[in-house]
Amino acid sequence: MQITVKVNGVAHTHDVEPRMLLVHFLRDVLNLTGTHIGCDTSQCGACTVLMNGKAVKSCTVFAVQADGAEITTIEGLARDGQLHPVQEGFWEMHGLQCGYCTPGMIMTAVDLLQRIPNPTEEQIRHYLEGNLCRCTGYHNIVRAVQYAAEKMRA
């Protein structure tokens, strides 16, 4: 089936099998390998991207469902060489170690901060429930999101 998906501002038209997951479309067809795969039960959130502005797990969306949608992946977050405040926060606060969960974690945090510009620590932890990190114990991820929130409010 032919689909057109706008990814990071660029429209891509491809013929895909209906069963192809969006995450494989991004990784294998568009070579956007920044979106990772960490599980097969929609738990870990490593594959999180923004679809029409909202965080979704691209392993739980068929590419055909994204036909006509606008997708932002981690590769499209920085603008004009300028890191997004959430990316900056992760770097500043040591919010990542191995970096495998990081793209998904960042994309979810972006959605969170769109909704709640000044989240409490509890809200941050709650909104990140769909993203598993095995390295950081989340301590510095929380700080990274707080950093970004402050920066974005400024």
């Binding site: 390998t33 979106t35 890191l83 770097w91 970096g99 990081t102």
Partner: peptide, 21 residues
């Protein structure tokens, strides 16, 4: 010192095994 490995990892440009084609 801020980590030097981070810029590639926070922009989705790490070199993980499954990325290699």
């Amino acid at each position: 010192v801020k980590r030097r490995e981070d810029p590639r990892l926070i922009t989705g440009r790490g070199n993980f095994t499954d990325h290699i084609k």
